[in-house]
Amino acid sequence: MANLNNASWSSGLCGCTHDVRSCCLTLFCPCIVFGRIAEIVDKGATSCCKSGTAYTLLATATGLGGCLYSFGYRSRLREQYGLEEKPCGDCCVHWFCEPCALCQEYRELQTRGFDMALGWQGNMERMGKSGATAAPRTHQGMTR
């Protein structure tokens, strides 16, 4: 079945007014927010720590922020949930308003029932889904 990408986001791009906690986390630690988003979108195949570190290194090395890396995850998130590509293309949203884009994606996953601090595996356990449905953990790093 084709994905029509016509569902609306649960909140607008600038919908931080009722979510001060996520907004502050995004402003002061975007690498953590991005890492958590990447881990959930990749269904545990990517670790929060590795993604957040890569985001920080790219932002530091290029001076462009992590938007060159993060916009791909917005595209994947939209594809997984059939979300509209608005207000403009994913790359443009991240290029011109990186903090707002990350915060909107974070809120979207929270609205869909994810506890972002738990990561993929923690959410699968919390939701009562067996380990067989979760992507295999491929790293032996820190755990939550």
Rank of each mutant, 00 (worst) to 15 (best):
E84S: 13
N123H: 01
L57K: 00
T56A: 12
L77R: 13
E108K: 07
H139L: 15
H94I: 04
T53N: 00
T53G: 07
I32S: 04
G65E: 06
M124D: 00
G44R: 00
P136K: 01
C16R: 03
A61V: 12
G128R: 00
G44M: 04
F71Q: 08
S22V: 01
Q104W: 14
Q104R: 15
Y81W: 15
G131T: 01
W120H: 05
F96M: 11
E39P: 07
F114D: 04
K129A: 05
S22L: 08
A101R: 15
H94Q: 06
G12V: 04
S47R: 02
Y73G: 02
G131E: 06
C103E: 08
R21I: 14
C16S: 08
G113P: 05
T26Q: 00
L83K: 12
T143A: 03
T26P: 12
G63A: 10
H94L: 13
A135F: 13
L118R: 00
E125F: 07
C49Y: 12
K43V: 06
Q110S: 12
M127S: 02
F34N: 01
L64E: 01
T111A: 15
A38M: 07
G131Q: 02
C49S: 10
C97V: 09
L109D: 06
R76H: 13
P87G: 10
C48T: 08
D42M: 11
Y81N: 01
L4W: 07
E79N: 15
G122L: 08
Y73Q: 07
C88Y: 01
C67S: 06
C31S: 10
L109C: 02
C24F: 10
V41R: 03
K129Q: 08
H139Y: 10
G66L: 07
L109K: 03
G119S: 04
T133M: 02
Q80E: 04
D115W: 09
T133N: 00
C103S: 03
L4Q: 02
T17L: 10
F71A: 11
T143L: 06
Y106D: 09
K50T: 14
A54Q: 05
N3I: 11
C31I: 00
G44T: 03
G63R: 04
Q80W: 14
W9F: 14
C92S: 11
A101K: 14
R144A: 11
A7Y: 10
A59S: 12
C29Y: 14
G113E: 03
K86M: 09
F71L: 11
G141W: 06
P99L: 05
C23T: 10
R78M: 08
R107E: 06
P87K: 11
T26N: 00
L109G: 05
L58I: 14
G35P: 08
P136C: 06
V41Y: 05
G35C: 02
Q121A: 05
C100N: 10
C103Q: 13
C97L: 11
C67W: 14
A59N: 01
Q104L: 10
S8T: 09
F71W: 15
K43T: 09
C92Y: 10
H139C: 15
G131H: 02
R107C: 12
C48D: 04
S8K: 06
A61Y: 09
E108W: 15
G65K: 08
K86Q: 08
C91A: 15
R74T: 11
C14K: 08
T62R: 03
G12F: 05
Q140M: 13
E108D: 03
